[in-house]
């Protein structure tokens, strides 16, 4: 295994090493099958259900997603087929990708915290859509999926570059620069670009890929430039607000991102400071209720 220190090698040296020294999660076969079925225009639910059922954790994850409160179904899914029918193939596809993402990385204590935070932000994002309504075509499941995948480039880079954690700490603490600009100083790529590519290779919708790509780009968020489509802009804003609520509620305040992206996110969501506190209370309460259930 490569060992690296914070006195990082030059970018040229890093390039010179082969990138082929860690296993990056390949796209799960089930996503290939889903993509093929979706393209066919007449998806075969039976075949998809059979493929999902072959993987116990995928099946459990899909059923859990179908039963999660923000979909608001009265009946509870008991089987994979039932969950697929309730969610529809599009939403089920995203739910499966979300479960597969976590499964794709070997479990480690440091990553557990990362996934837990991602899952909480994803959940809050989904709740926020429930409270704010569907706009720009962004539904709860889109916001939820984006929350899960937003930072998926980080575990990839953590495995590739042991020194990446130190860079993350510095990026988290920097109040002025774009988060990814700090990564760019030390490494040949950053988690937003890697995340976008990974999401693309896993066939996630384009607005989610673009939102992952630009989720630290506060100038782009502030400017209203059309290079970031409204749906992607909304996803970034929802997850940023969810992260802020999570950090406020959990007492964790590890990032400076709200200072950079908060105003633009509120403006995208057409929210004021007063509504923010009320909304935060509702989201946390909603989530606590869901945890009990």
């Amino acid at each position: 295994m490569t060992t690296e220190t914070t006195q990082s090698p030059s970018v040229e040296e890093i390039y010179a090493r082969t990138v082929l020294d860690i296993g990056i999660p390949p796209r799960p076969t089930i996503l290939d099958i889903l993509a093929r079925e979706l393209r066919s225009g007449e998806p075969d639910f039976g075949r998809i259900a059979q493929c999902v059922s072959e993987d116990v954790s995928l099946s459990a994850g899909l059923i859990k997603t179908a039963n999660s409160p923000f979909f608001g179904f009265r009946v509870r899914a008991r089987t994979v087929s039932h969950a697929l029918t309730m969610l529809g193939i599009n939403i089920a596809g995203k739910a499966i990708a979300g479960v597969a993402l976590r499964n794709a990385f070997p479990a480690s204590p440091a990553l557990e915290r990362f996934w837990d935070a991602s899952a909480r932000i994803a959940e809050y994002s989904g709740h926020l859509v429930g409270l704010l309504g569907v706009r720009e075509g962004i539904r709860s499941d889109d916001a939820y999926t984006f929350g899960l995948f937003r930072d998926c480039g980080m575990p990839v880079l953590m495995r590739k570059f042991p020194a990446y954690r130190d860079t993350l700490l510095r990026a988290n603490a920097n109040p002025d620069k774009r988060f990814t600009a700090i990564e760019d100083e030390d490494f040949p790529t950053n988690h937003a670009i890697v995340g976008c590519m990974l999401a693309q290779s896993w066939s996630l919708p384009e607005e989610i890929c673009l939102a992952i790509r630009h989720h630290h780009d506060f100038l782009l968020m502030q400017s209203g430039a059309i290079s970031l489509p409204p749906a992607s802009r909304r996803l970034v804003a929802l997850a940023q607000l969810a992260e802020y609520i999570h950090q406020q509620h959990s007492g964790m305040n590890q990032t400076e991102e709200w200072a950079k992206l908060g105003m633009a996110s509120l403006s995208t969501l057409e929210l004021g400071q007063v509504q923010l506190d009320e909304l935060a209370a509702q989201v946390v309460a909603h989530s606590a209720q869901a945890d009990i259930e």
């Binding site: 390039y15 990138v19 082929l20 990056i24 990839v156 040949p188 790529t189 670009i193 890697v194 590519m197």
Partner: peptide, 18 residues
């Protein structure tokens, strides 16, 4: 400006030999 980063990310995510 992001070309080389995107290329690197594509190599990384696909796990292909450059």
């Amino acid at each position: 400006p992001k070309f080389s980063q995107a290329l690197y990310a594509a190599l990384l995510c696909s796990d292909v030999e450059p």
